[in-house]
Each structure stands twice: as structure tokens, then as C-alpha cells.
Design a protein around this nucleic acid. Sequence first.
DNA 1: TTCCTCCGAGAACGATCGTTCTCTACACTA
DNA 2: TAGTGTAGAGAACGATCGTTCTCGGAGGAA
Lengths: 198, 198
Amino acid sequence: MDQEEARSRILDAAEELFYGRGIQTVGMDELRAAAGVSLKRLYQCFPAKHDLVEAYLRRRDARWRAELAEHVSRHAATAEDRPLAVFDWLRTWFADPGFRGCAFINSFGELGPVSDGVTGVARHHKQAVHAYVTGLVSALPVGDPALLAGQLVLLMDGAITTAAVSGEPAAAEYARTAAEALVAAARAAGPGAAAGPG
Amino acid sequence: MDQEEARSRILDAAEELFYGRGIQTVGMDELRAAAGVSLKRLYQCFPAKHDLVEAYLRRRDARWRAELAEHVSRHAATAEDRPLAVFDWLRTWFADPGFRGCAFINSFGELGPVSDGVTGVARHHKQAVHAYVTGLVSALPVGDPALLAGQLVLLMDGAITTAAVSGEPAAAEYARTAAEALVAAARAAGPGAAAGPG
DNA sequence: TTCCTCCGAGAACGATCGTTCTCTACACTA
DNA sequence: TAGTGTAGAGAACGATCGTTCTCGGAGGAA
């Protein structure tokens, strides 16, 4: 087996186990078995468990954002649809049987206080998502795209955690209606618009 | 030392350590030392660690919601102010040096998949907060209080997690402005109001 | 074939953790 | 004063975990 393939299989197993059951709950030997590699190979690829944890989070960050962006660009016809398509994608994600909330929030809650690496990756992920959403709303005629993006990101994280804890995907619907209202309000206060009533 | 006092000191230490560093990171012996009780006493009060974890979460749930309700009832003059006062309280909480996100989301992310007890307490907490917010918005002339409450709860959870991961309390401001917009939109669509433009 | 190198399988090691057990000291009762 | 029950201090136990080490075998080069 190639070193490259071993690394990929280890990361696949790590993503399934770490995301599904938590990081500290999964031992290196169970991970080795799930990946189908030897312990020696595992430590060749990742010298310590925290290296594997951070690599898992980094890969998941890239893939998660790529899937989100692909769904948005594929399903949103106009610039107005794009921010809302984010929440449609969330709904399909919540319905996935393996859904268990945000991997970065979970990892941060579990290891943030004792791992600067985990904290850094989680923070980077949230910043990247924020930047992506800011890009989406910047195409809209709103007065303060940064404000609207910040609000939408709150709805995203709130929906993710609520859906995870409650076990029901309905949070995506609430978030979408809230996003519609916030986008509408931002457009009403957009450049060239009169000040709102009050 | 009284049994009652021992129990209280243990729960105090558990809350500080579990919330601040995570549950699995804190051992029973460190907890015993922080509480200033003997190991025998510790296991008399809580026969196993998971008993202590669930007791910690239940007590924190009650206290957290009581503090929130007290702040709202004390600082909000009118029914219109009450939902927004929630976010003012969040802002002060985020600024606390010990703030580290939502104890229930953190615990759920760490132990949810392997502990039905933790999952149950986290779910109960979120349902109770939802019920409280529903009560707040039910006093407002809005068409669908349950919908607005669901939206506001998403903003709360999103703000809490964003503030925790980013380490900056600014999320509370975004959440408050979003809450204002959502309340205004719900009032515009409230009972007796004409349908909105669109 | 013989040697060298690499790999997988899994034992082993040291540390930690949750939990229990032992020992000693002290307060209270007859 | 002798006896009894209880508490604290901390050793001990069994399990688990991250990590390293050992052993035996496979494959290529001379």
C-alpha cells in the first residue's frame, strides 16, 4: 500500500470516528483497525494523535466549505438566491443520518482549552465561512454587507447546533425564514434606500 | 463538614473545572482536591463520575436560566424590550473572562454520542430556553410567536458558539441587531397587520 | 543463496484514570 | 476507660490509552 493511500484511509477513518463519537473516545488502535493499516504506518503518517486530529479538522474544513460552495453555485440561480441556498444545503445536511453537529464546535468544546491547534483550526474554519458568506451578500444591494453576513453566520451556527442537540432538522427551516427576513431588511436599508420607519 | 455542604462544594468545583477545561480532561482526584473533600466523601455524594456530570449540568441549567430571566425582568421596561434584553445579557456573559461557550453544547459535543444522560440534559436545556423565549415573544403582537421564538433561539446559540470560538464578544451585537430586525418583521406580519410588500 | 531492508502484527511500557480498599485517628456512648 | 462507628488520607487495583519495541516474514541486490 502506498503512503499516500494509507494517509487517505487513516483520514477517512478518523473523520468517521472522531466526528461520530468524539475525539477522546476513539483510541489509536481502534482507528488503526478502522483504517486497515498497521500501527507503525499510522505513526509514520501522523507522529502523534494531535497531528491526526488537526489534519482531520483541516481536511474536513476544506471539504465542508467546498461542498457548501458547490451546492450554492449549482442551485442558486440569482445573486439573491445564493445566501438562502446556504440554508437549503444545511437542511439536507441535517437530514443525513450521520449528522452530529459542527465538527469544529464539537472539537473546540472538547479540546479547545487544552489544545491550541484545535482552537486555531476551529477559529480558521469559522472565519473562512464568514468570509464566504460575506462574499455572497456583497453581491446584493445592501447597506452593510459585513453586518448581514455576520447575522447570517449566527443563524447558520445556531441552526447547526440546535439541529444537533434536538436531533431534528427543523432548525434549518427557522433559519431560512429568518435569513429571508434579514436579507429583506438589509435590502430595505440598502444603498440609496430611505431610512426605515421609526 | 455537612453532607449538604460537601455536595455543594463538589458541584462548585465540578462546574469550574468541567466548564473551563472539558469533562474528560478533569480527573476525579483533581476534582476532589479542588472541592477540598475526601475521595470517600466524593463517591458518597456521587457514586460515579457520570452522576456528577449530570448533576453539574442540571444545576447549571437551572442557574443559567434563572440568571437570564432575572436580568430580563430587571432590565426590560416593556414587553417589546424583553426579547432584546436577552442579547444584552449575552453580551455581558461573553465578556466574562471565564466564558467558554455553552456548557451543554460543549458537553454534548464531547460526550453526546456515548452518554444518553448528557444528551438528555442538553436537550432539556435547549427546550427550556426555547419555552422561555416563546413566553417572551407571546406577549408581542406577532402572528407566529413560535416561529419568532425559534428564530431568536437560533441567534442565541449562534452568538454563543461564535463568541466562544472567536474569543470576541462582538457576536452579541450582531445577534441583537438581527433580533431587532426579526421582531420588527414579525410585528409587521402580526395579527391585524396587512401582508407585507411582496 | 545470503544479506539487507522494510513492513505488519501485536506485545510491551509507562502514564493516567475511575474506583475501591486499607489504615489510622477521632468523636461519641456505656 | 473500653468499644464502636465514621471520616480522611492515600495506597492499590484494574482498565485503558498513547506510544514504542520486538519479532518474524517478504522482497530485492549481490
